[in-house]
């Protein structure tokens, strides 16, 4: 098992950021902080998915003069996996949308109670 490899190190960074974000979500009391932890966790998930598609020593999946091309522009064995990259591409844009939505809710909550401490939102408690 080789430790010093870009794929494994990135996997470790992804796992670390997920755990960090999870810790923030569980331990923080301020709603803005919880949303921030959510953003960090999402970054970790994105790193994780991209690192699963990384192949050691291969280049980006773009066919140009930097890549050796076979017949019919085949680049098999030259490039990394394009599918996780495409998934993460959409995931980042959706992440922006969800973060903006969460912040809109946070603003609405602040307007209602003039506070962002989550302990004060106990209307459903009885």
């Amino acid at each position: 098992m080789e430790f010093f490899e870009l794929g494994k190190i990135s996997l470790l960074i992804g796992f670390g950021l997920i755990v960090l974000g999870f810790w923030g979500i569980l331990s923080q009391k301020n709603i803005i902080k919880i949303i921030l932890s959510f953003t960090i966790m999402e970054t970790g998930v994105n790193i994780l998915i991209v690192s699963l598609g990384y192949v050691k020593g291969k280049t980006a999946p773009i066919i140009d003069s930097a890549v050796e091309q076979g017949a019919n522009h085949s680049v098999l064995g030259q490039v990394v996996d394009p599918v996780p990259q495409a998934l993460v591409l959409t995931a980042i844009v959706i992440g922006f949308g969800t973060t903006a939505l969460l912040l809109a809710y946070a603003m609405k909550l602040f307007k209602a109670k003039r506070t962002l401490q989550i302990n004060n939102f106990n209307d459903l408690k009885w």
């Binding site: 870009l6 794929g7 990135s10 960074i13 950021l17 953003t39 970054t43 994105n46 790193i47 991209v50 690192s51 990384y54 291969k58 280049t59 980006a60 999946p61 773009i62 490039v79 990394v80 990259q85 993460v88 591409l89 980042i92 844009v93 992440g95 922006f96």
Partner: peptide, 24 residues
């Protein structure tokens, strides 16, 4: 987010790096 964008560039994903840097 910006650091993760550099990491994406190292992992041969320039498309994702661009998106992360501008949006994320």
């Amino acid at each position: 987010s910006l650091f993760s964008s550099i990491l994406f560039l190292l992992m041969a994903a320039p498309d994702v790096a661009m998106t992360e840097a501008s949006i994320g």
